[in-house]
Amino acid sequence: MVASTRYLLDVVELKAPSKALLEVLVDSREFNVARQVVEEIRRMGVSVRVEYLDVGDYVVSSDVAVERKTVSDFVSTLTKRNLFEQLSRLRDSYSKPILVLEGDLSSIPLLSSINMNAVLGALATVARMGVSVVPTPSPSGTGRLIALLARQERRPQQGEGKRRVKAVRRSGLSDEQLFFMCGLPMIGRERAEAILRVYRTPLEALKRVDGWPKRVDGIGEVIVKRVKEVLETPFKV
């Protein structure tokens, strides 16, 4: 399947217009680690705008968003058990969610001791969730795929003006909960989200702060010690 995808991406020609009329949003964190993907999108004549995205790595339209995983990333997220949470959020935010699986699946036995049946079972679960799985052979292949998606998503009624893509934004109470958790020492947005995904509410998380290292990835005893110091030290004017 990967080989056939490579062939399709090789024969697709996207002629870049003199001025890019299409735009794709890329998450700022993804931008820092996937420059080849971004360069290929631009080379195909699609403009790239970098933003902090709440959901997904690339937003192609109001309907289509992409989560990109290299094969090694995919295996890693399986062992950490956060893949399905990421994709559930993607599916709940966009009507056409896509998981791009970048690289050679046959290399998995060389990268991890995880059973191949577990990998295939995970892919089957992703498909049953309603998330399309699209393999690509390389970062440049991923970039070409995203550029092609941008072309296909272009609405005829939009004419020749540049199409400005908007990302789905979560707001309201969830943002306030994240803001509250981010106020704790050494807890940034990613750790705050990880904590709340496990404990659901800030109150429950604070009640069970001693258990964070065992249940939350990226949280160790040093962080817990600093958080408890803030929570338990009497306030002094």
Rank of each mutant, 00 (worst) to 15 (best):
A3I: 10
L9P: 03
L9E: 04
V11S: 08
V12G: 00
V12R: 04
E13Q: 14
A16C: 05
S18D: 13
A20P: 15
L21D: 09
L22V: 10
E23N: 11
R29F: 06
I41K: 09
R42I: 15
S47Y: 08
V48N: 01
V48A: 06
V50S: 07
Y58H: 11
V59G: 03
V59C: 01
V64Q: 03
A65F: 01
E67W: 00
T70V: 12
T70H: 06
T70Y: 02
V71C: 07
V75L: 10
T77V: 15
T79Q: 11
T79P: 00
K80Y: 05
R91C: 05
Y94R: 10
I98V: 15
L99G: 02
V100L: 02
L101E: 01
D104Y: 03
L111S: 04
I114Y: 04
I114W: 02
I114F: 02
N115H: 13
M116Q: 09
N117H: 13
L120A: 06
L120D: 00
A122W: 01
L123I: 15
V126S: 07
R128V: 13
G130I: 09
G130K: 08
G130L: 04
V131A: 00
S132F: 01
P137C: 11
S138C: 05
I146D: 00
A147N: 07
L148Y: 06
A150H: 08
R151E: 15
R154F: 09
Q157W: 14
G159Y: 10
K166T: 15
R169V: 15
R170E: 12
L178T: 08
F179C: 12
F180V: 04
G183V: 08
L184K: 06
M186T: 14
G188E: 03
R189E: 14
R189L: 10
E190C: 05
R191E: 03
A192P: 03
E193W: 12
L196M: 13
Y199T: 08
P202G: 05
L203W: 06
A205Q: 05
R208S: 12
V209Y: 01
D210W: 05
W212K: 09
V216R: 06
I219A: 02
I223G: 00
I223W: 05
I223E: 02
R226T: 08
E232A: 13
E232V: 15
